[in-house]
Nucleic acid binder design. Structure first.
Length: 1048
RNA sequence: GGGCGUAUAGCUCAGGUGGUUAGAGCGUUGAGCUGAUAACUCAAAGGUCCCAAGUUCGAGUCUUGGUACGCCCA
């Protein structure tokens, strides 16, 4: 198809409304179904060898998207678009995370339920039905938003963690781990609300308002040391603010490195940290007698008599253990350990092999295990316990303690820590293997690999995967309800369930799944029943199952999955090193003994415009939807992806950032397109892309060859960067290219386009087409609009990635042109320094540099750029400059050592000579490689050095009357051009021009009348007085000129 | 308390293996140029390279110890 398709007068405005262009592209994609076509166009290949597998981390959709999702979404779009253009098939299914506490909390709020008991009263079936509706309520908004950001992803064939096939795969994973012996049931200590009768997730205890000041009793208790030791009879002092945990005491802990003392007072001996003795002056005296000193390590293993006798004789219990968390900030430096009621306590006793005791029931009341307090609520029991301690003379001190204490965020009750039965994945068993497999993953930034992620893996703990909740995948374990006939059945598929329970299973959610029961086959009495354990799975187990569960592996797609695991690419923000990245890796290692992904990009956090955390209440960041409509998604994409945030840093999101992306990237690109359509249209130029490319390659014009070589280098650089997932590198390469394209090629080529130069059109069309292709993933909509207009093709995203080999390589030309640009810069600087305006022509510039002949082809270009009549080249630099010595300390330093500093100073002072090729500086003869001889200008009035000492530029600054007159004529041209603009004329309109000028200005115009008329498309030129409101300007120094034009 | 990261111009960041005078973009100021541009070109102002000690002929760069900030763990 011929191009341009767009009429330049209408379709390609000089100042586009970018959001409108984007909407046009989005509409086209919808109607054309371009996304589907982009996937179809690429073969999967044998065993999917040609597929690129990208894992989309499922967002939780019970809230609206924010900038973090936006950023991740852009990356999740860019990489697949690139891989598609490279010829790979990239399926992109959207996923929804639907289970877990966030969903339950939202649902509770919506239903006005306040506790677990209320949910059960309301009905688990109705509650879960409400949760199912709730979690998907924002999906429409997500679709809108993701679509608007030009992210191509399949919402039709999405997956949800609540889908039956997904849940079946999760069940398979559980069973597989169970069969490998990697799942066990055990105790874990959690913050627990005795009123709601539920443990709280860590996040729930970190919410606002949960920590409040509270006054608790604080007791110091003496525990008598027993056994065959000189310390026998002394009392170990322990301090606690939870006296109700003392009946459950199973150990005491000291810090191995802390100094402990035994002090004697009133016939009693007490053992405590030396640093805490002063704090007990009231009971022990001001300076009690120290009868022994021990490091913590020397106390380990000592036996003592517990505060109560309920659990005397438990295996390994009631001894002194070591714990690093013990401090001497408060208390006695010896810590009372009740493993069921303290997370840290349990870590210590687990290490010592001591089984916890839990004499407290679900509602926070003591059980029959501790008869005196049975039935009492733990907080109410504090008083009785303290009283009993006093009675047995174990109580040394009783006072109160004010501290920040967590409360239930739902009901406000003070929480307790309590051990609960829970299911675990034995991560510690394959921790080392996880560390090994991590070596196969490429991380960006690279320090994540052995830093944040590697360290986290090395310290991995067993993973509690059960939740005592309602809305989630069930733990697929059925147990006998009679301990006399124990049996455990674990299920890994719907088929197994249906086989054992004889019903069709269409939903695995509670409460339906709980209704599946059957007689215990191992029970000859036939009375006991197999019932499902009550817990549901941690929703992270489901997120980690995503690679296989989304394809219903192993029940379907087993072959496909085998060939597509690990996935190629994954991107999320840093916190996911402990979240999704980690759990994918845990399950991948445990189930498949492979990593789950090959490449991971970890990005940093987006901050508000003020550099603080984004805050809804502060509104310290631009509104997402407004930004879409103000700047467009491509500009936002560019700003976010070109930023340090993709290299792991934090970055503020500002409107200024979006605006800069528009001004520096999107508009310049658009303007090249506009410029092209304007002049190609005016010249009636049309050529198909292949024709244009052939013509471009045939062009001998240096600017054309330069641009094509630059374009080739662009393709090479961007390809390498994208292959390395270095999106930031790709953006910076494109940005640099755009600079050469707009501010050099187009600017230097205006006259040629004005003249309708076809080689120029062909070259610009070819470069622009290639640039659009190379930038298509980074600016998907603006490049689509331009590319389609330019080529008449269907979509840039269906195009193949450009091949650098299709363009000529000419690095020498690129380098020569860069030198020319340097020369131009220096020339303009010289004019400025000498106050010689650029419109004033000068007679000559001389370029003195080595191999000057290579620059001769650029003489015309330099004449025009510097506005001089002639450009001379001279390789004899010495005629214009003198030698300048530069030392190379890197080489000189090692030889001279200390003397090098003296030589450096001598050279700076000018104390050096060159004789017969021998350089002597500061009395030291220099050897080859220790110095460089370069040049500096001799005649400072007319000469400037080129960068890097490569030569000099000599400017003839003499202004003859002829040159002055020509300068004035050009000044007048400028005023007439402005008058044309002010009259809103089209670039091709012919005019009659009237100039109001006198004296030498008028004389200059008359002398150069043909030039003035030619430049301004004036068929007639006359002189007359013009009113002050006519377009005015300055000619030469301070003389006013006016001009007016009339369209002919 | 521990781990990881960061600290260079007003802002955002570059600165292999140590090497003379630390750079870029944006922003500010001035001038120039302009019938594609919301631009562009040339320049100016703007730096105790977080601090301290050390290694070295020489440290933004290497070592050690601090400080501040961010993230995470406890």
């Amino acid at each position: 198809m011929a191009y341009p398709l767009d009429d330049p007068r209408r379709g390609v405005p000089a100042s586009p409304n970018l959001p409108e262009v984007e909407r046009r592209v989005l509409d086209f994609w919808t109607k054309d179904d371009t996304f589907a076509a982009s996937i179809e166009a690429r073969e999967a290949g044998e065993n999917g060898a040609n597929e690129f597998v990208f894992y989309d981390g499922p967002p939780f959709a019970n809230g609206l998207p924010h900038y973090g999702h936006l950023l991740t979404g852009y990356v999740k779009d860019i990489v697949p678009r690139y891989q598609t253009m490279r010829g790979h098939r990239v399926e992109r299914r959207f996923g929804w995370d639907t289970h877990g506490m966030p969903a339950e909390v939202t649902t509770e709020r919506e239903l006005g339920l306040k506790s677990k008991a209320e949910i059960e009263a309301y009905g688990v079936d109705r509650f879960n039905a409400a949760a199912r509706a709730s979690v998907l309520q924002f999906t429409d908004e997500w679709v809108d938003y993701v679509t608007r950001q030009a992210r191509w992803v399949d919402f039709e064939n999405d997956y949800k963690t609540l889908d039956l096939p997904y849940m079946e795969s999760v069940m398979w994973a559980f069973k597989t781990l169970y069969d490998k012996g990697l799942i066990y049931e055990g105790y874990r200590v959690l913050w627990y609300c005795w009123r709601c009768e539920t443990p709280l997730a860590a996040t729930e205890t970190k919410m606002d308002d949960t920590y409040r000041d509270r006054q608790d009793p604080a007791v110091t208790v003496g525990l008598e040391i027993t056994g065959d030791t000189p310390l026998a009879g002394a009392k170990l002092l322990v301090w606690t603010t939870t006296p109700w945990t003392l009946p459950s005491n199973l150990a005491a802990a000291v810090h191995p490195d802390v100094d402990y003392v035994v002090v004697e007072t009133e016939g009693h001996r007490y053992l405590l940290a030396e640093a805490r003795v002063a704090a007990y002056a009231r009971e022990l005296g001001d300076e009690p007698r120290v009868v022994a000193r021990h490091k913590g390590t020397e106390l380990l293993g000592l036996a003592y008599r517990p505060p109560f006798d309920f659990f005397v004789g438990r295996e390994g219990a009631h001894r002194v253990l070591a714990a690093d968390y013990v401090t001497t900030d408060d208390g006695t430096g010896v810590v009372h350990i009740a493993p069921a009621f303290g997370e840290e306590d349990k870590v210590v006793t687990d290490a010592a092999g001591i089984e916890p005791v839990v004499p407290v029931d679900d509602s926070g009341r003591f059980t029959e295990d501790v008869p005196p307090y049975a039935g009492m609520h733990v907080f109410d029991a504090n008083k009785a316990i303290i009283k009993d301690l006093k009675a047995t003379q174990r109580l040394l001190r009783h006072d109160t303690y004010n501290h920040n204490y967590p409360h239930c965020w739902r009901c406000g009750s003070p929480l307790i820590q309590r051990a609960l039965s829970a299911w675990f994945v034995a991560v510690t068993r394959f921790r080392d293997r996880m560390v090994e497999l991590n070596q196969e993953i490429d991380w960006t930034p690279s320090h994540i690999k052995d830093g944040q992620f590697g360290k986290w893996l090395a310290g991995a703990r067993d993973w509690n995967i059960s939740r005592n909740r309602f809305w989630g995948s069930p733990i697929p374990v059925w147990t006998s309800d009679d301990p006399a006939y124990p049996r455990v059945d674990v299920y890994g598929s719907l088929e197994e369930l249906e086989r054992d329970f004889g019903v069709e299973v269409t939903d695995l959610h509670r409460p339906g799944i709980d209704e599946l029961t059957r007689p215990n086959p191992d029970d000859p009495t036939g009375k006991s029943v197999m019932r499902r354990v009550p817990e549901v799975l941690d929703c992270w187990f489901e997120s980690g199952s995503m690679p296989f569960a989304q394809v219903h592996y192993p029940f379907e797609n087993a072959d496909w999955f085998e060939h597509h695991y690990p996935g190629d690419f994954i991107v999320e923000y840093t916190a996911q090193t402990r979240g999704w990245f980690y759990l994918l890796h845990v399950l991948a290692t445990a189930l498949f003994d492979r990593p789950a992904f090959r490449t991971a990009l970890v990005h940093g956090t987006l901050l508000g415009a003020d550099g603080q955390k984004m805050s809804k209440s502060l509104k310290n960041y631009p509104d997402v939807r407004v930004s879409f409509e103000e700047y467009g998604s491509d500009a936002m994409r560019w700003f976010l992806v070109a930023s340090p945030v993709l290299r792991g840093g934090d970055m503020p999101v500002t409107e200024a950032g979006f605006r800069d992306a528009v001004r520096q990237i999107v508009l310049p690109l658009w303007n090249v397109w506009y410029f092209y359509t304007l002049y190609a249209g005016a010249a009636g130029y049309e050529a198909a892309p292949a024709e244009a490319r052939a013509a471009a390659l045939a062009s001998e014009h240096q600017l054309d060859r330069y641009l094509l070589a630059k374009t080739r280098e662009l393709v090479e650089t961007v390809t390498a960067a994208m292959d390395a997932y270095d999106l930031v590198g790709a953006t910076s390469a494109f940005r640099a290219y755009l600079e050469s394209l707009t501010n050099w090629y187009v600017r230097r080529s205006r006259d040629r386009f004005w003249e309708g130069d076809e080689a120029g059109f062909a070259t610009l069309a070819t470069a622009l087409k290639t640039a659009c292709e190379a930038a298509a993933p980074l600016l998907p909509m603006i490049t689509e609009d331009i590319w389609r207009g330019l080529t008449g093709g269907r979509s840039v995203h269906l195009a193949d990635w450009p091949d650098a080999a299709d363009l000529p390589a000419d690095h020498d030309l690129v380098e020569a042109m860069d030198t020319v640009r340097d020369i131009a810069s220096v020339g303009l600087f010289m004019r400025k320094a000498r106050k010689l305006r650029v419109r004033l022509p000068l007679a000559k510039v001389t370029v003195a540099t080595g191999h000057a002949e290579r620059l001769e082809p650029f003489a015309e270009l330099l004449k025009d750029e510097l506005n001089v009549k002639t450009v001379e080249f001279d390789s004899n630099i010495d005629a214009y400059s003198k030698a300048d010595l530069k030392l190379v300390p890197r080489v000189l330093g090692p030889r001279l050592g200390k003397d090098v500093q003296r030589v450096i100073k001598a050279v700076k002072a000018g104390d050096w000579t060159v004789e017969d090729g021998t350089v002597t500086a500061g009395g030291v003869v220099l050897e080859d490689g220790e110095y460089e001889l370069t040049t500096i200008a001799v005649d400072a009035d007319h000469t400037e050095a080129l960068p890097r000492g490569t030569g000099v530029l000599v400017l003839d600054t003499e202004v003859t009357p002829e040159l002055a007159a020509e300068g004035l004529a050009r000044d007048v041209v400028r005023v007439v051009q402005q008058a044309r603009k002010d009259a809103d004329l089209d670039v091709t309109d012919r005019v009659a021009a009237v100039v109001d000028a006198a004296g030498d200005v008028r004389a200059a115009v008359e002398a150069h009348a043909d030039f003035v008329k030619g430049e301004t498309l004036a068929l007639e030129l006359s002189f007359a007085d013009l009113p002050p409101e006519a377009t005015g300007g300055e000619a030469g120094e301070g003389r006013t000129v006016r001009a007016a034009v009339r369209k002919l």
